[in-house]
């Protein structure tokens, strides 16, 4: 760990954090765990490959999952992120009152067992749903788009199918995420 420090400010789950002096080579995941006590984001491979550490970056291009374990606070500085703790609706005491449709679907579909990968899947699926709100797709493309969006997230228990089915159901059952299929009667 470097002994050079930088002053860092960022938004996490809508709340401003910092300014705080951090080692310049600290990773975003360590900041979440060690400084903010947000431990729902998981450390998996430590190489940005398994995506257990995925969080949502709310940037100019919209919501995008990024691997927090290899993304440094030097880059995160001044940006805005959402972790798994920030998705559900909470009451004034901080208790969860309403899960998001993605979270609820993962429960309904029994998508996970050990849950180590789950916060990463929530990030990837949520970012996908938000992207589709801006740019709906044809229903017949949903399967491929879901697979593409979740393909990098690794799960060692359940074989992925229930994650994919849950995400597909959310997309097909939420108005505005899909548009009518392109047909001869209904050209796009």
């Amino acid at each position: 760990m470097s002994d050079r420090m930088i002053s860092v400010t960022m938004r996490i789950n809508g709340e401003k954090t910092g300014p705080v002096d951090l080692p310049e080579d600290l990773m975003l995941l360590e900041y979440l765990h060690e400084y903010l006590n947000l431990t729902g984001t998981r450390y998996g491979c430590g190489q940005g490959v398994c995506r257990a550490c995925a969080v949502i970056h709310d940037g100019a291009a919209g919501a995008e999952p990024i691997p927090a374990c290899i993304t440094g606070v030097a880059w995160a500085n001044g940006r805005s992120f959402r972790t798994v703790e920030g998705h559900a609706t909470r009451d004034d005491d901080g208790n969860v009152t309403q899960l998001t449709s993605v979270q609820q679907a993962f429960l309904d579909h029994f998508s996970f067992q050990c849950s180590y990968c789950t916060s990463g899947f929530v990030a990837a699926a949520t970012a996908l749903v938000e992207r589709l709100e801006a740019a709906p797709i044809a229903p017949e493309d949903v399967e491929d788009v879901v697979l593409d969006a979740l393909n990098e997230n690794i799960c060692r228990c359940t074989g992925y199918v229930r994650y994919l089915e849950a995400t597909r159901d959310v997309i097909l059952n939420t108005p505005g995420l899909t548009r009518a299929a392109v047909t001869e009667e209904n050209p796009s």
């Binding site: 470097s2 080579d25 993304t71 030097a74 880059w75 500085n77």
Partner: peptide, 29 residues
């Protein structure tokens, strides 16, 4: 590190997580 501070910040933010702050890399990674 100081002459090219923007490059250094980008390196730490996007590259150092795998390649290391001193560019040391990781075996098998």
């Amino acid at each position: 590190l100081t002459d090219n501070a923007p490059g250094h910040a980008l390196y730490l933010g996007l590259c150092a997580g795998c390649h290391g702050a001193e560019g040391q890399g990781q075996p098998f990674g």
